[in-house]
Amino acid sequence: MNAKKWDHVASGVIYTLVAAVILILVAILGYILFNGVPDISWHFLTSPAQSFSAGGGIRDQLFNSLYLLVLTIIVSLPIGLGAGIYLSEYASDNWFTDLIRTSVEVLSSLPSVVVGLFGYLLFVIKLNLGFSILSGAIALTFFNLPLLTRNIEESLRSVPNLQREAGMSLGLSNWKTTTKIILPAALPGILTGLILSAGRIFGEAAALIYTAGQSAPTVDYSNWNVFSATSFLNPMRPAETLAVHIWKVNTESVTPDANLISSASSAVLIIVILIFNLGARFLGNKLYKKITATK
């Protein structure tokens, strides 16, 4: 066979593989949305869940998921940035940084249920935090941090070395070069990583069952006092998230409309993640253009 023919065959194989990926993705998304979207209503989004009767909503679970996500990112982003910057811009290649990288990799392949049990033993029991949003956020930080750190490190590394030399040759310190030149240039990559990890956090269930708990106590959305037990902002209250709710409704719920609730909740979960994705991408592009002055 000649080169041209081989090229055709190779292109065909590649197209087929890509089509398979897209097909699987579209099938899953389509199935979830097709089954769930018709059952999503304003009432469903804004009313509390019911334990025994039909017609319950997901108001608290949806809020808990978002709140937990925000808390987790607040905890993990500074640590991830610090570690990523250290590994990419400051650390020299030696056995110590190799050890850090290996640990990060091992940590990232830890099953989330193990992270959950570890969080249960350490935060919930030992440190007496109880089933709480805070325990959940710390457990999710453990779960999220390795990939986030890795991603930030890679994004920073992918900025050409010429940029660092330019900064150095103009008398900028390593810190200034990193924060004012390298970090802005790496921002789109870091943002993509953050979005991906936000999706993982938002959809995580196993690590939260043992840390944030499976109950959603009624909270008062007009109580802004973080320390009040009934406040929606209190990080020390137990909080069932949307993903945990889906799991629970499917396993131990006695509500007659369990099927409806789980499919509608799944659709909401997917839609929220899609909104994050598109929104963050849009914001990231805008930010990048503003910093780099490209049109």
């Binding site: 050409p160 940029q163 330019a166 103009l170 008398g171 310190s173 910093i291 490209t294």
Partner: peptide
């Protein structure tokens, strides 16, 4: 060394402007 490099500047083989505006490239340092 940072002061040394402010007195002794350098231009490299491959152009390496910062991913910023023309004005910022000069004003920022």
């Amino acid at each position: 060394v940072y002061e040394v490099r402010q007195h002794i500047g350098m231009v490299f083989q491959r152009p390496n402007p910062f991913a910023k505006s023309i004005r910022e490239n000069i004003i920022f340092p």
